[in-house]
């Protein structure tokens, strides 16, 4: 562990913005909310944020991404992979854990270079949570802290940041701030420990379940009459709970041509299983026609599917879906609590 004074840290960030060829990203205020965006100045970096509107997955799996370019006259297709090397400041532990889950999906299925190359070319600078959104239940999900998934990890210990180094990439980045780094003593280590000890108090205290019960509870509730219908009744099928989720990665693929009809691109765009046409095929057959079926599907993905496949619970408790669902019905704590309490929904 190292430490860096806050003023020195700001200088370091400003120097990176000025001199590093990579794009420097950081959490910034977006009116009364927060978002990851390119940094113009270290002043704008808000390491005290609670949660961002979208998770940082947008840098590895962009909202719209060109996979293939083609020329219809020549019948030629070329694969493309737009990789912008980035340094990303301010990722909370739950998002780092979500990124590690995404890595598994894109590595272990088929080694998807469109995702993986963007990951390789990014440096992830995490930050321990100074503030938590009122919706977050990361502590319950065991994602309020992490020992892995970051290149560097910052903790605010007053006038300094404690810096933990998680990888070679991280220590290389730190090289550039070498002269400003302090060695840490017992005092700093103690402060980091205290910081983490106080974390649980920052989160809501209503979750009643243990994350590793979820696969079993979901299997029990899969066929429960009325349960999903009841919970999904006010669903607007707007996909918000998918799009804002750090572990959702479903996508659509479509061709977009320019009007001269000769050139075009095959795009992959974010999609969501809550959207009505997600499982629809030609001939108007829709395998999840009812909103209750789609609502259940999302929970199965979060609480069981990734667990069966990789041993991970795919809800990291960030609370984004809970907060951003307009009719306020997407809060996983609510649904998981109902299961735990044994409600049958009717």
């Amino acid at each position: 562990m190292k430490a860096i004074g806050k003023a020195e840290f700001s200088n370091f960030v400003d120097e990176l913005i000025a001199d590093d060829p990579r794009e420097v990203i950081g959490v910034q205020a977006k009116s009364n909310k927060f978002a990851f965006d390119p940094l113009k100045s270290a002043e704008d970096l808000r390491l005290d944020y609670d949660v961002t509107i979208l998770p940082p997955k947008k840098y590895f799996m962009p909202q719209r991404e060109t996979l293939v370019k083609y020329n219809t006259n020549e019948g030629e297709m070329t694969a493309v992979n737009e990789v912008i090397p980035r340094i990303i400041f301010g990722i909370h532990p739950y998002d780092l854990i979500a990124i590690q889950q995404m890595d598994k999906v894109f590595e272990e299925t088929h080694s998807d270079e469109n995702y993986l190359a963007k990951r390789r070319e990014s440096v992830l600078v995490g930050v321990n949570m100074k503030n938590a959104s009122e919706w977050s239940f990361a502590h319950t999900m065991g994602t309020a802290t992490t020992d892995s998934g970051y290149d560097l990890m910052l903790t605010d210990i007053g006038d300094k940041y404690a810096v933990e180094i998680g990888s070679v990439k991280g220590s290389e980045l730190l090289e550039e701030a070498k002269s400003q780094l302090d060695d840490v003593g017992m005092e700093e280590i103690e402060k980091v420990r205290e910081f983490k000890e106080e974390l649980p108090d920052k989160f809501r205290d209503d979750p009643e379940f243990d994350p590793f019960e979820l696969p079993r509870l979901l299997s029990e509730y899969y066929g429960k009459d009325g349960f999903w219908e009841e919970n999904a009744e006010d669903c607007l099928s707007c996909g918000t709970c998918n799009l804002v989720c750090p572990t959702c990665y479903c996508f659509d693929v479509k061709d977009v041509n320019d009007i001269t009809l000769t050139e075009g691109e095959r795009l992959r765009t974010w999609d969501g299983c809550m959207l009505e046409a997600f499982a629809q095929v030609a001939g108007d057959e829709n395998f999840r026609e009812e909103k209750a079926a789609r609502y259940r599907h999302r929970y199965m993905r979060k609480g069981r599917y990734m667990y069966n496949k990789f041993g991970d619970i795919a809800c990291v408790g960030c609370g984004r879906c809970s907060e951003q669902c307009v009719p306020d019905i997407a809060d996983p704590v609510d649904v998981f609590n109902q299961m735990k309490e044994g409600t049958n929904g009717i």
């Binding site: 999906v105 894109f106 299925t109 088929h110 998807d112 299997s219 899969y222 066929g223 990665y249 479903c250 996508f251 659509d252 693929v253 999609d271 299983c273 997600f278 499982a279 629809q280 095929v281 395998f287 259940r296 599907h297 199965m300 993905r301 069981r304 599917y305 069966n308």
Partner: peptide, 22 residues
């Protein structure tokens, strides 16, 4: 038959849920 976009287990479109697994 299911809706399919990728064919390689990524896009999520073709997933089928069951009581015990998907």
């Amino acid at each position: 038959e299911r809706r399919m976009k990728c064919g390689i287990g990524e896009c999520g479109h073709c997933q089928i849920n069951g009581a015990e697994e998907e």
